[in-house]
Structures are given as C-alpha cells and as structure tokens.
Design a binder for these strands. Structure first.
Length: 486
RNA sequence: GGCUCGUUGGUCAAGAGGUUAAGACGCCGCCCUCUCAAGGCGGAAUCACGAGUUCGAUUCUCGUACGAGCUGCCA
C-alpha cells in the first residue's frame, strides 16, 4: 500500500525547527517508501491567522527541498490544501451532522459563561475537567427550536463515560485511557469553522493519509480521534508521534529564543542543508555512525522505527559544527558565490576576493563569522604593541622592531608579491640569520594585520594586500615600536 | 491537581539480559604549523533512584523522583 503523509501546519507565524522537523520526518517517511507527501494549511482559527505565514511555510519547504506532490493546481504546480477553502464545500458540517444523526455528536448551546463556571465547580472534591453533557439531554424539538431562533451553537463529540479507549502508536505502543477522561470536544465552532480536532480527522481520512505523523503534544488527545474514526467507521491510520525538541533548559522551544525559527537560522548564517541535516538527527539516528546526510541520502536511510521517544535539546553548538562541515565540503566556487555578499560587506578594496573566500572557507562555522576574520584587510586596526610579544616565537617589541627594520628593504626590493615568492624570499633571510620561522613571521603578520590571529600566514596576507599596502603597514609597525622605545 | 509520555556523559546518541557501555558536538592535552583554523593522536565525562525477576541487569517488571505534554469554540 502506498504511504501517504502530510504536513499540516497552522499559519500562525514563523516556522520553528520543531515544525520543520515534523515536516521533514513526514516527508522522509513517505519518500522512503516512494510515497506521497502533502501540505495542508490548517487555518481554521481565524483569530490566530497571521498574514503571510502561509508564504513563509511555503518558502521554507521550498528552500529545504520538502516539496509536496499533490494539491490543487497552482501556477502550473501544486498548491497546498487549505482547510478554509475546503470548508466552503461544506464537508466538515456534513460529516458533523452525520455524527449528530448517529448520536455520536450533539448540538450544544451552552455559552462561555456557563462553561467557565462549570470549570470552576468542584464535585466530590475534584475539579471538573470535562464538559458535563448538559446539552445532550436536549430534546430534538428544543434543538430545532434553538436552531430556528438562530441561537449560537457548537457541535460536540459524544464520548462514553465508562470503559476505556486504546489506540496504537508505532513508537509509543498501545496507550489506554479511561473514557471518563475523554472530554466531549468541540467539532464545529460557533463561527462554523471546524476545530483542529475534527478537521484533522476528516481531512486525513478524505485525503487518504495512511501515516499520521505529528508532534508528541497530540498523544493524549489521540484516543478521542480514534473514537471519531470509529464513529465514522473509517480505518484508523498508522500513528507516529514525534518526540519534542526543547531548548537548553529542556523547555519547549519558544519564538522568543531567537534561534528557533528556520528563517532566523538563515539570518544567523546557516545553510538550509545543514539545518535539515542537523534536525534530522534530532530524534532519529541511522544504523551506522554517519552524521552527514543530504536530503536524498536521508530518504534512502530513514527508517521511522529508529525515531527516539525522548525529547531532544536543540544544540546550536553542534549545528554550528555541522554547518562548518558543509562549508568545508563545499565546492570552492560555490562557497565563493555564497560568501561574496558577506565579504563585500567588509571589503570594498580591490583585492582578490576569491582568495579571501578560500582563506575563510575552512575557518568559519556560519557566514556571520566571516566578518571578524577579514576586517583587517580593509583597514589596519588600532593595535597594542604587546601583540608583538609571543613567548613561543621568542619575540618581543625589541626583536620585532629589528626584524621589521631588516625586512623592510627586502620587501621594498621584492617585485613578485605572489605568496610562494614572498615565502621563499623571507626564508632566505631567516636561514641567513639562523632564525626560527615564527621569529620573523610573527612580527610581520602582526604589523600587516594588527590582529592576534588571521585566516592566513604573513606571506599570504602580504600577497593579498599587495606591495604598497604591505610597505605602509610595515612602516607603521616600525613607527609604533620606535615611539614606544623612546 | 488529574491524565499521558519520557529518563544512557554538559548535548545528540548506539547498545535491548553477560560489552573494556560505540560514535559525534563541546571541553582539555599533545603533534603539525609563517598566527588561527583545518588535519592527526590522546584524555576527562554517562546507564536518575529503590525494590523485584534472574546465576547475572543499563537492558525486563513495579514503585519513587525528576522532566515534559495535554487538561481552549489553539493547533
């Protein structure tokens, strides 16, 4: 049988990594078996609807490659299914009324006032947590009369109060609850829209969803959904509930945490592929020890039975590492292309940006790291001459001054400023004097960059900076050291 | 509070009765080195607790603790 899954977000804002992971797993479960993946926008809550949220979802899925393969025609492709659109066909009301006719659901005219006071009331020392079926006892005539009068109503599920209900989850196994715990949840709201609880079941069935994959938060309400399937006589789908993703404090990710949404991560300089790869491993692991997976490789390897049950902490540190791995593995041409905007933000000078990109490629974890590595190319920063002192290199202000003075005429004489030529020339000087490499290179690199660390060695930097700028900076270094001496 | 679920190093995790309890991130050290990275090598660090079952429990059962989710005319 073909596997059919769906990603069913509500358009209420940005897409969190938790949402994205649900989409990813739903996609992978279907694609692993060559199945069908769908997108269904659950916009039945008119109040929470956020303008543009559907577009965000759409673009996020596009960027991550989680493309759905069924839906209403749109621009020569498939649009998403949208519940508010489906509602116009009267589908949800039709099915709700069917349940009313079967006695599995009923009209309820209770106002919010009564519901609230009900919640506060205490029976036998226990708080009431489920609706008291007050309107179930209404006669058919009373219901008709209320409806004719245009009284606002909802339709509620009619759950039994005795016995138990069991449902099966592929990961969590059988879960049984007392029916007395089952609230007569609302199926149709007073504004005519279905609730998630109802629309979800109706849509999953009518769209022939075989595997209902969703967050763990639905685990405890799933028995109620099962009763709905049974009331309709529909086949219950395979359930796969996913463990939560939390922040470092083991709390559910919140929009305020800043790095939680996919868009934020892109802004923080992460690559979509790396994010997808990382979150795939948040709650799932392959049989071997592999960690780097393309989407296609994930499709091939993904076995949902290996999804874990316990929540996972979103570790930005490991994401950073993984992102860096993607940079390192990336074709240098492609990296150059992607990094260019970030480089140009810092460097306006006419220097070989391709080489700058190459220097930085193995040294960064996110695009945002680029800036700190290369800012000195643009302008020599103010620096402290204490930087000339390096224990291991056996350098200090005095030795540095001498080296810089020695080396200045050599650099002025030097015509070829290619890296290799510079290195060869300096090695000659080093050898002649019996110095260690670092003894000479450290002061030069310091003078030329004004930084403690740089994305390349002294000669590489000089080669990029060019002769003129190099001379200027070396002279500046000598000047600084001399003025400190006196 | 009630219900449901979960618990292997700081984090992601493998292991499903007998293992020196993998691997990765991070951390620390060493090597390499014209700095920093990268790369190589090594190190510290884990089965929440208590009973049971068993010749033997990280692995099975039950409790406890802790954590999380649900308890909306939100999804």
């Amino acid at each position: 049988m073909e596997i059919r899954t769906r990603y069913a977000p509500s358009p209420t804002g940005k897409m969190h990594v938790g949402n994205l992971r649900s989409a990813l797993y739903e996609f992978l479960i279907a694609k692993h078996e060559d199945g069908t993946f769908m997108l269904r926008i659950e916009d039945t809550d008119q109040e929470r609807f956020v303008e543009g949220a559907t577009e965000i979802i759409y673009h996020t899925l596009e960027k991550t490659g989680l493309v759905h393969d069924e839906g209403p025609d749109k621009d020569g492709g498939y649009g998403p299914y949208v519940q508010s659109e489906r509602m116009k066909t009267g589908i949800y009301m039709k099915y709700a009324k069917q349940l009313v006719d079967q006695g599995q659901a009923y009209y309820c005219f209770c106002d919010k006032c009564r519901l609230e006071s009900l919640k506060k009331s205490v029976v036998d020392g226990k708080e009431i947590t489920v609706y008291d079926k007050h309107c179930l006892s209404l006669s058919k005539e009373e219901v008709e009369k209320n409806l004719a009068e245009g009284k606002p109503f909802v339709i509620r599920q009619n759950n039994p109060t005795e016995g138990t209900t069991t449902f099966h989850d592929e990961l969590y196994g059988d879960i049984t609850v007392d029916n007395s715990e089952l609230d007569d949840m609302i199926l149709i709201k007073s504004d005519g829209y279905p609730t998630y609880n109802f629309a979800n079941v109706v849509d999953d069935h009518t769209m022939n969803i075989t595997h209902v994959v969703r967050g763990n938060e639905y685990l405890s309400s799933s028995p109620k959904y099962n009763r709905l399937y049974e009331a309709f006589g529909w086949e219950v789908p395979t359930y796969i509930h996913l463990p939560l993703i939390t922040d470092e404090n083991h709390k559910k990710l919140s929009k305020r945490s800043g790095h939680a949404s996919f868009e934020d991560l892109l802004e923080q300089g992460f690559l979509p592929e790396a994010v997808v790869n990382y979150i795939a491993l948040l709650g799932w692991s392959p049989e071997d020890n592999r960690e780097i997976f393309s989407l296609d490789e994930l499709i091939k390897e993904f076995d949902y039975h290996r999804i874990s049950k316990s929540p996972a902490v979103f570790d930005i540190q490991k994401l950073r590492w993984m992102n860096g791995e993607y940079f390192k593995a990336m074709d240098s041409e492609k990296f150059y292309e992607l990094a260019l905007p970030y480089i140009k933000e810092v460097i306006t000078k006419d220097i070989d940006l391709k080489k700058v990109a190459a220097m930085v490629q193995t040294r960064i974890e996110t695009f945002l790291d680029i800036k700190d590595h290369i800012d000195f190319f643009e302008a020599l920063p103010e620096y402290d001459i204490a930087m000339y002192t390096h224990k291991k290199m056996k350098t200090n202000a005095e030795t540095s001054l001498q080296v810089l003075k020695d080396v200045l005429p050599l650099l002025e004489k030097q015509e070829d400023y290619e890296n290799d030529a510079l290195y060869e020339m300096l090695c000659g000087y080093i050898k002649e004097n019996g110095y260690k490499n670092g003894y000479v290179m450290w002061p030069i690199r310091t003078a030329v960059s004004g930084k403690q660390m740089t994305p390349g060695g002294a000669t590489e930097l000089m080669s990029l900076l060019g002769k003129d700028e190099t001379i200027v900076r070396i002279k500046k270094g000598i000047e600084l050291l001399e003025s400190a001496e006196s």
